[in-house]
Design a protein around this nucleic acid. Structure first.
Lengths: 146, 146
DNA sequence: AGTATTATTGTAATTGATTCTCAATTACAT
DNA sequence: ATGTAATTGAGAATCAATTACAATAATACT
């Protein structure tokens, strides 16, 4: 069975919510899924500009919560003063390992997080909605440079 | 063997760095260790005011990185637009489970994180410096209210 | 198709957390 | 004591993110 495209997912979400399907939102979404890896609002806005799109930053800020709400995108915290994002639709769950020296970001699988979530649900009566895990360290190169 | 107090830890850090020991910094640190749980800069500033202290927010913002640097305090991310903090000296490692409905925050042990860090170090050649894990969900009460 | 309704847009102003500037103060070494 | 350099408080500046508002455009309803 074939997976729905992100645009399809988004259109269904829009319809279900009685929101409106606009070219701006779909441009933004398409651009997000063409970006490999992480991005922030500025980067996304610049990329859209480069392709001739006139979408404003405000619209990007307004669209992102929608994409997050329908599970296409999520926030990523790099603790550098502003939010980063990444598309997650069709991706394996992963977390980020970031080098404090050079800023390199690696992705890694999260063995055991499913079990942890189940444990928390049982232990505290919570319905788990999601989690974020970030790990920081020094990459091999930056260790030498110390 | 008795554990050093947080003030002692901080004074040693200050001395080692050729920084200066000031009443402001020590007031802030003391207040932090009297707070049970998490706080943000505003709350901390108000508590200090209430006790008659005149420390400015700027000094709090300047002191926090020092406390974090010497392992007494850490940032906590509740994804609500600003940073929260907590003292960690003498505490077991823990992460936070936060209810998206009412904002309740529970702490839980992190089984397996040590193993995960060791694995990442081996796999990617990183020297691991730390990690953050947050889990979100709905508590029993907020599930019913839905 | 034509019109009414109301969501969405871009622009610019605003907010709010954090950082910075600067002059005055103060801790520490000599 | 004195010189120095770090630290302080106050307020200005910064910067990401949000919001107000008037214009536009997508959908619903004739």
């Amino acid at each position: 069975m074939v997976m729905k495209s992100e645009i399809q997912v988004f259109r269904e979400y829009i319809r279900g919510r009685r929101l409106r399907r606009t070219p701006e939102r779909e441009q933004i979404l398409q651009e997000i899924f063409e970006i490999h890896g992480h991005f922030d609002v500025d980067e996304l806005h610049l990329k859209l500009r480069d392709k001739g799109s006139k979408v404003s930053k405000a619209s990007i800020y307004r669209a992102l919560p929608l994409f997050m709400d329908c599970g296409l995108v999520r926030e990523v915290d790099f603790s550098d003063g502003h939010w980063h994002y990444e598309h997650i639709y069709g991706h394996a769950r992963h977390s980020h390992l970031r080098c404090l020296g050079c800023g390199e970001v690696l992705e890694f699988e999260e063995p055991g997080m499913g079990r942890l979530e189940a444990h928390l649900a049982r232990e505290y009566g919570y319905r788990i909605k999601g989690h974020q895990l970030q790990v920081q360290g020094l990459c091999a190169t930056c260790q030498e440079a110390e």
